[in-house]
């Protein structure tokens, strides 16, 4: 019995907790991608850079707050700085929409041109971020580090396996739940949210019923930028901030959005967790886990790892490709905000 409990704790510690955290971060990122896709109808390649930009501003405000002695008790100071980062991300995204995307919208250009334009923005924002904060790794987490430590957990339960939950992991999940709840309340019940869904569903009909398209577009950009900043800050707190990593995050985020059904917010969340858990479960070495469960003398000698950790990113893409082939609309049917 104890072996079974130990194996469950082991799995929780190395698969479930990291998977939940990473899944939440991907879900927030994918929600932004999916909203842009639903309203503006293109895949925004600059989304990873939006995350990096918002996070960078948050980090700088955090440093400022730390230097003047503002702190958030046991919670990271970055949470206090986050609104500033989000505001800056909203500002830069709205600016890019005004000077770049609006022109193509008015011309009713093909989606591919929006996509290429977003590659241009990606370059520019990538340069800005590296120019201001540099390409190096930055750590900015402070406050309490752990919610539960492995040693305390072992003492509490008397099991030989410990469970560690970092503060940033707990925060990520809690904040994601709050943000997602607020977003869905907004989409379902507010006038603007309904206008967005109508616009996403049928642009012409929405225009006929008097919805102001430019306003819908602006609100969408703003929400996507806020979500991107939250996702970026949570990821940065949990791991660390490095501009190139944020560029690479674009890939699993796209995968999450598409696997879930692009344009579908629930799908984006589902996709985030599907991608995160498949990355973690496929690259986890099950040797110790099986040792607890296998009968005496049957323990495995090898690591029992399906794929080496180096292929983490590849996993999300294999899933993406399979989904695109088997069910191109994603797990939940996508294409419009529902």
């Amino acid at each position: 019995m104890e072996d079974i409990l130990n194996s469950i704790i082991l799995l929780a510690n190395f698969v479930i907790v990291p998977g939940m955290t990473y899944g939440s971060q991907l879900a927030l990122g994918a929600l932004g991608v999916t909203l842009i896709y639903g309203i503006l109808r293109f895949s925004n390649f600059a989304h990873g850079e939006t995350m990096a930009f918002g996070t960078m501003i948050t980090i700088m405000v955090t440093w400022f707050m730390q230097s003047v002695g503002i702190s958030f008790g046991p919670l990271p100071t970055a949470l206090l700085a986050l609104p500033f980062g989000a505001a800056a991300a909203v500002a830069i995204v709205l600016f890019s929409d005004r000077v770049v995307y609006k022109y193509y919208r008015e011309k009713k250009s093909n989606a591919v041109f929006f996509l290429i334009a977003s590659i241009g923005i990606m370059f520019v924002m990538n340069g800005i971020v590296r120019f201001i904060i540099g390409p190096k790794e930055q750590r900015f987490a402070d406050g309490e580090r752990f919610i539960i430590k492995a040693r305390e957990f072992k003492q509490m339960t008397g099991l030989s396996e410990g469970l560690t939950i970092k503060m940033t992991q707990g925060l990520t999940v809690v904040i994601t739940i709050i943000v997602v709840y607020a977003l869905f309340r907004f989409l379902q019940h507010s006038k603007m949210g309904r206008a967005m869904r109508a616009y996403s569903d049928n642009e012409d009909l929405a225009l006929l019923s008097g919805i102001n398209p430019e306003k819908v577009v602006k609100i969408t950009w703003a929400i996507a930028a806020v979500l991107a900043t939250i996702a970026g800050v949570l990821y940065g707190l949990d791991k660390s901030f490095k501009p190139f990593t944020y560029f690479q995050l674009l890939l699993p985020i796209f995968a999450a959005a598409i696997v879930g059904g692009v344009g579908n917010p629930i799908g984006a969340i589902l996709g985030g967790f599907v991608i995160a858990f498949s990355e973690v479960t496929v690259t986890y070495a099950y040797k110790k886990f099986l040792k607890y469960l296998a009968p005496e003398g049957m323990e495995p000698d090898s690591l029992m790892q399906l794929l080496s950790t180096d292929y983490k990113f590849a996993v999300s893409f294999i899933i993406l490709v399979v989904v695109l082939l088997v069910r191109p609309t994603g797990i939940l049917k996508g294409r419009v905000l529902e």
Partner: peptide
Amino acid sequence: MIMMGSILL
């Protein structure tokens, strides 16, 4: 990077 993006746009 900024230059390349600007040229493209």
